[in-house]
Each structure stands twice: as C-alpha cells, then as structure tokens.
Write a protein that binds this DNA or RNA. Sequence first.
DNA 1: GTCTATAAGAAGATAGAC
DNA 2: GTCTATCTTCTTATAGAC
Lengths: 193, 193
Amino acid sequence: MHTKEKIKRESTELFATLGYEGTSMANIAERVGIKKPSLYAHYKNKEALFLDLVMDMSLDYVTFIKDSLGQGNVSIEKQLYQAFITYVHDWTQDNPANQFYSRFLQYPPQQLAEPLKEMLSESERKVRALFSDVMKEGQEQGALTMELDSETMAYTYFALIEGLVTEVVFYSPEEISKQAEKSWSVYWRGIRA
Amino acid sequence: MHTKEKIKRESTELFATLGYEGTSMANIAERVGIKKPSLYAHYKNKEALFLDLVMDMSLDYVTFIKDSLGQGNVSIEKQLYQAFITYVHDWTQDNPANQFYSRFLQYPPQQLAEPLKEMLSESERKVRALFSDVMKEGQEQGALTMELDSETMAYTYFALIEGLVTEVVFYSPEEISKQAEKSWSVYWRGIRA
DNA sequence: GTCTATAAGAAGATAGAC
DNA sequence: GTCTATCTTCTTATAGAC
C-alpha cells in the first residue's frame, strides 16, 4: 500500500497549489509515477481521493494545535505566545498539508462544500474550545483582564493568527514571523490584566 | 457596450464562487444570455476577461478604503473604529466584487499569479501606507502608545481584519460583525496610549 | 495493481455566415 | 456583435488484458 501513500502525498501538494479543478488525475498520476487508470484501483474517483485527504487534514489539525499549546506548567503568557508563534510559523512555511487545509476550508469545490464543511467545522470547534479554556484559566489566575470575556479573547486570538498567515501573499514567512512577534505584543497588551 | 458590462458583472460572480478553473466560458455566456462564441467579440480569451476584472477590483479597493476611513475631523479612535467595522461588514456581505478580490489575492490561477500579484500589491501598499500615517498621527496626538511603532499597529490592524473576515467560513456576517466589535476592544486596548 | 486502449463529454477557441 | 458549426485538446472514467 505504499502507492496509496504516495498518491496522497503528491495529490495533497497538487491540490494545495493548483486547486481542485486545476489538478487533473493525469497530473497526479504523473507525479506518482503510474498511469492515470491505476489511480482508480486506489480510489473510486477524484472526489473520493479528495475527501480522503480532507479527513486526514482535520485529524492532523487538532493534533498539531494540541502539540503547539504544549504543557500547562508554564505561564499563560508563555503558553499563548508559544502557540501563537508556532502556529504562524508552521502555517506560513511551505507545508502542503497546511496549505491544503487553509485553501479548501475557505474555498471548497462547490459540489463538495457540504461534506467538507461538516468535517472541518468540528475540528475548529474543538480547537477553539481548547483555547477558550486557556483564557478562562488565565483570568482565574489573574493574568488576563476581566473586562473581556474568554471567548472574545480566544476568537480574536484566532482571527489575528489567521490574518497574519494570510499575509504570505505579500511577505515572506520570515517577515511574517518577525511581524507576528510585534502583533503579539499588541494582542498581549489588549488582553493582559 | 451594455453586453460587456453584463459579462463583467456575471463573470465576477461566477469566478468568485466557482474559482477560475471552475468557471467555464459556456457558463458565463449562459448567465449573460448570449452564446459562447459571442464572448470572444468582447475579450480575446478567458485570461483577458479575468485580468480585466482584476484591474477593476484593484482600483475599486483603494477607493473603498479611502471612503471607509472618512474625514479626519473625528478622533483617531473613532476613525479607526469606523473603518474597522465598515471593512469587516462590507467584506463579509455577499458582495461578489469583494469575494473575487479576496479569493484571487490569496489563490490566483497559477499561470496568472505574476501579473495579478503585481496589480494587487500596489493597491495594498497604498492602503497600508494610508493607515500607517493615521497611526503616526495618533501617536503625535498622544492617543496611541509610543511603545509600538506605527507600522506594527497598521499591520496588526489589517491582519486582524483579514482574520475576522476569514471567519465567514464558520459564522454568519451578523455574528462576525458582533465579534468585530469585541475584537476591536482587544485591539484598541493594545494600541491606545 | 498496473497497464493499453478507448469511450464520452466538456473545455477553450476559431471560421465564416448574417 | 451575434450566431451555427466545428476543431482540438483535455477531462474523468471504464473495459479488459496481464
């Protein structure tokens, strides 16, 4: 089953770069090093292949976020800062899996919009809940302001990260990482007690 | 030349919804109410049509931002807040032109990436400079903190807006507008003097 | 599982009449 | 400027041999 893994890896990259319609089965087969019809021995059709990738992504995403949050035995500020920087860094790197996730979360192929949104919304909900808890803990510890509610802080946290990642259009990953440090200080000033 | 306007309007909507490869010339012609070959009397080919739309967008974008900034005879806080809310509101509405702009800024069709980026980078640069100036003025007036530089405040401002707009994937425009108010308060706490 | 061959259709684009 | 007819190429997908 090594071929199937190769199909996944190559098609992830192609879909992320060229989009769903922009990527052809012939295109994928060529990269894998097999002929086009051989793909159909592994997947019923293009949609099935694509949805299999989406499934993988949504699982990996939650794992990635949990890891970036790290252990709870450091200060809230450190914990949030670390996850913030890691997230922005990894998401702006040339990482096909992340690019795939971001792209199709925002712009799914229309006929697959429903199942795709269903799969990914659940992941996002989990991740946001995770951070909302961290914020609440921070408030209890007296590290974060009580003037704002924890959901707002979590929501804004994600929006800012999302926005920074989007800047890859104009800036290099290195510039964005530098800018992320500065934007963090704006955000931290905004939520600290 | 009424037909050309109709072609632009309909194709903007289709491209924004279905993407570049996902939109066919037949598809556009049908919406316009003409036959496919008639399109070629107005545009040399699909790429030319698409690039004409991009050109329009980049012009409209700068105008829109200038308008949302309003006159300078109110407080910096009001001015920034107003533009912030307006931007998020308009960008999450069902507005084909804005959706077109956002989509292809982030994910251009690969063969058009170069000319497209060239056209849009210039608009973005202008808009950012506009805001950087407002921030500097705010610092001189003593309304904004001197601990941060004006570029950082401007950059973070845009990143946050971008991120909020991205949330349309999960939330309704109304929910996002509400959240934008709250995220604004985080941001304002972060930059005020 | 992989191949060659091929079907069936849709894509972008052109020729030439009106 | 718009049409019908057509070309060429590319698309997804299947049949059937090995």
